[in-house]
Design a binder for these strands. Structure first.
Lengths: 226, 226
DNA sequence: AGCGGATTTTGATAAATGTTCAATGATAAA
DNA sequence: TTTATCATTGAACATTTATCAAAATCCGCT
């Protein structure tokens, strides 16, 4: 589980990062609003912990703008004491929960747990469904749609897509893909994978020339990133 | 499987009803909260799809009150974009899942399947009558007619048709079909299924060369889609 | 049991569809 | 700018599916 912590108080960052990591979370931090916003919009977190008072861009703005961009990651806001009115504001802007400083770390953990538990789909064990951009993939039915329009994928295209999605975030060399998806044993070198990747981009990406999800990692191979 | 759809947007009602019915569900609709509530409390549904914004009584209230009355039918809430906080509220009130508008219909289908799979008494009742194109199938009598003219199907043809219809929408590999319809254990490879499919198409499709209902999914197998 | 017709299976071949490969041009790193 | 890597294309190639008819099987009947 990946958590983004947006907080400027150095001490709190250390305490929380430490504790969260020891709870098994993968933690990234940003110490100002702008950095937080860009991290949150470019990477897929399971939860965002967002302080209200931040340099450059305050928590409310970050929250509102993320929601405006369609980011649906649960957000837990941290407000300073006496900002009662602001809690409501935070919730209106799309936050999912809030916590008033100072707080007990254990309470934070409890709320995190609650938020992660109630975010459906995210913590699904066997994802038989996946959505990215305006593409929807149903693994059970071997069906893909884009903006409600069914997209026809060949069997290989579908298998490749499935593999990339199931192992998203990681880079796969062409050979790994040939091995994992095609079952070929280290065929010397070939453009087969490239061609299939190109087809997938053609059919699924908004702008195939500049793929947003099916990315190439120069010198290494390909990866899926949402 | 009976689904109650509580939604006030006429267009969405049509789209969803249509699709859900073609997936084999028995769909009833209510276009305001009160009607939805009374239908849900008086009849036994397997699933309720509940919009949040509704005339007369909003989705939250419907959800809370149904749970308060002891109705345990799984509820899938539809929230408008940006109502993030409301999702949580919905879950607190006893909803089982939610989906944010706009969504891809196949995502809704996937979530419905997941919810139904989770729910206990999932003994599916297969209808004893089915219609597609100008074909009518009577499962009880094992009779098929096309344009009122009786069509003679052999036993195997009929069983295959029935299986495809009862599991419509899903793709079945030849082996799955051999297993499910013929009861053969993974016979190596055979043209049996193909031939039977061809016969069904010959007898039932308007244009057997370009089947409208009994479709082939290259690389995967066959599926029935209406 | 044996016969005859209907049904089912099978394998061969044709048709449709999907995949691979190598050449070429484009792009990114050094 | 140079070099390495990647994207794209179309034609050759491979696989999968449709169709057909012969062979095998099943089934009701005597």
């Amino acid at each position: 589980m990946k958590i983004l912590l947006v907080e400027d108080e150095q001490g709190l960052i250390l305490t929380l990062t430490d504790r969260l990591q020891s709870e098994g979370f993968d933690v990234k931090t940003a110490s100002d609003g702008e950095t937080g916003f860009s991290l949150a919009s470019n990477e897929n977190f399971d939860l965002i912990i967002l302080d209200v008072m931040l340099p450059k861009k305050n928590g409310y703005d970050v929250c509102r703008d993320l929601r405006g961009k369609g980011v649906e990651t649960p957000i837990l806001m941290l407000t300073a004491k006496g900002e009662t009115i602001d809690k409501v504001l935070g919730l209106k802007l799309g936050a999912d929960d809030y916590l008033t400083k100072p707080f007990e770390v254990i309470e934070l953990l409890a709320r995190i747990e609650a938020l992660l538990r109630r975010s459906p789909g995210k913590n699904q064990i066997s994802p038989d469904f996946f959505r990215f951009g305006d593409v929807a993939v149903d693994f059970k039915r071997a069906e893909v749609s884009k903006n409600e329009e069914p997209v026809e994928l060949s069997a290989m295209e579908f298998k490749l897509l499935q593999y990339l999605i199931e192992n998203r975030g990681r880079v796969h060399s062409r050979n790994d893909l040939l091995d994992a998806v095609w079952g070929y044993d280290a065929m010397p070198s070939t453009r087969t994978v490239d061609v299939h990747v190109a087809w997938l981009r053609q059919k699924l990406e908004a702008n195939p020339k500049h793929p947003q999800f099916i990315q190439t990692v120069h010198g290494f191979g390909y990866k899926f990133q949402d």
